[in-house]
């Protein structure tokens, strides 16, 4: 059995779904941040696979992935900093307890 585009896309879709589930269901803010990273990496897999199979003569997909990784790093840095601030003020990182504003 040879590995084709479909295999990568299925892997990417499954990873994306796992990440999305975790981002919505996890009870720890840092874990949510990790799940968002999983979603972004799922996108990266899809991008590279598309780049290889759909437009092999161009490097657009690869370049896109590098940009995504750089931006994700910036986002994670800001996210962890804000989580630190939350922990200092509330003593917890459980999103269900971060609810001082009424809904």
């Amino acid at each position: 059995m040879s590995v084709g585009l479909e295999h990568y896309l299925v892997l990417s879709a499954v990873l994306f779904a796992i990440g999305l589930y975790g981002a919505l269901a996890k009870r720890n803010t840092i874990a949510i941040l990790l799940c968002i990273e999983i979603m972004l990496n799922a996108v990266n897999i899809a991008m590279v696979a598309f780049s290889r199979y759909v437009a092999p003569q161009l490097l657009t997909g690869h370049v896109f992935v590098i940009f995504i990784m750089a931006v994700a790093a910036a986002e994670a840095a800001v996210g962890v900093a804000i989580i630190m601030a939350i922990y200092r003020s509330k003593g917890t990182v459980d999103p269900t307890e971060i609810d001082s504003m009424k809904r």
């Binding site: 994306f16 981002a23 598309f50």
Partner: peptide, 20 residues
């Protein structure tokens, strides 16, 4: 941040599919 980052991951998946 958390909702924004999730939304941009969804957006990126859309971009990946359009690119593909």
């Amino acid at each position: 941040l958390l909702l924004g980052a999730t939304a941009s991951a969804v957006l990126l998946y859309g971009m990946a599919l359009v690119f593909g």
